Computed example of a mutant assay.
Amino acid sequence: MRETLPDESAVTIDPAAYEALPFSDRCGEIWRRGEHLLIGVSPGNSYFSHRRISELIGWGRELFERIDIVHADLHVEAQFEAFGYTAEHALRRAAKEVKTTARRIARGIEEAGGPDGVRAHALSDFAGHPAYRRLHRRTVDALRTDRVFREAAEGMARGFLAARMDEGLAPNEPQLAAGIRYIAAELPFFLDTPSLLGVPTSVSCYHLQLPLTPVLFGRDEGLRAAAGQGYAVVRPAAPSGPAPAAVMQPARAA
């Protein structure tokens, strides 16, 4: 367990406040190594309040040597354009959402006691990174050639876009294409975070199981995650009752 100096301003975290469900045995092995946790934050997602981010940091510090938070800021405006905004208005709306997200992350880090062992990045910070460019090219190629991957990516995009649409409506082709471009920009961190951040192994986490998870982490062909990349659903623990058997409890050795 990492040692941190007491900070009276930091949020106090119950170690049982969150539960983690690694997707596979291999993901569980990577989780238990406790080397790196990646928290991905999407603009406009109300789940990631500054309080939630602070809690996740405090909880993750008990388990991992290092935490990185990456917020998406690429292709956000394309989604607004696909929903009928003018290019200028779409840029303003996207910039506002991205700025709000960055402020939430900064406040969450501050309330968690500061940046000890925690770093924050915008996705665009990696646009020129050779590993990011290589992984993004692989993603784009797979969208053309890998039917299973393409269908899962479309399913993920539809779910993401549904939050911006009236109930019962489905995205049209331009909206779906914009959603897929947005997802493709994030996927390098689901494929190989170690090569992007220089860590031995990493677990990407989100509070939901994603349609792409079994594709990237559960098959032996096509586009899939690197050997050192894991994935886990990390969510608030149930208010009462025993934890499910698959849940990884905070038990990293000192």
Rank of each mutant, 00 (worst) to 15 (best):
A232L: 03
P171K: 03
P250Q: 06
H75L: 12
A178M: 12
S195L: 04
E62P: 06
Y18L: 10
S49H: 04
H89C: 13
I67E: 01
A17V: 10
E221M: 12
P6V: 12
R181P: 01
V247Y: 05
I30A: 01
T100Q: 14
Q175C: 06
E110S: 11
V118L: 03
H50A: 10
T139A: 04
L56H: 04
Q229D: 04
A163C: 12
P236E: 13
Y18K: 06
A238Q: 15
H71N: 09
Q209E: 15
M156K: 06
E8K: 15
L37E: 03
I13V: 14
I183C: 07
S24W: 00
L123H: 08
R150W: 09
A122N: 09
F217G: 00
V98H: 02
I69R: 04
L21S: 05
A95C: 03
E167A: 15
Q249V: 08
A152P: 08
A17C: 10
G222V: 10
A102E: 13
E8P: 07
E55K: 14
Q79D: 03
G40E: 03
A120G: 09
A157C: 11
E154K: 11
L196S: 00
D116V: 14
A82I: 04
G60C: 02
G198S: 06
R93I: 02
G128S: 14
R32M: 08
E186L: 05
H136S: 06
A82K: 01
V140R: 15
A163L: 14
G117N: 00
L91A: 14
K96T: 11
A251G: 11
V199P: 03
A122C: 08
V247D: 04
P239D: 09
G113A: 13
T4D: 14
E55A: 15
R158K: 15
L135A: 02
Y85W: 10
H136G: 03
V98S: 00
V118R: 01
G228P: 05
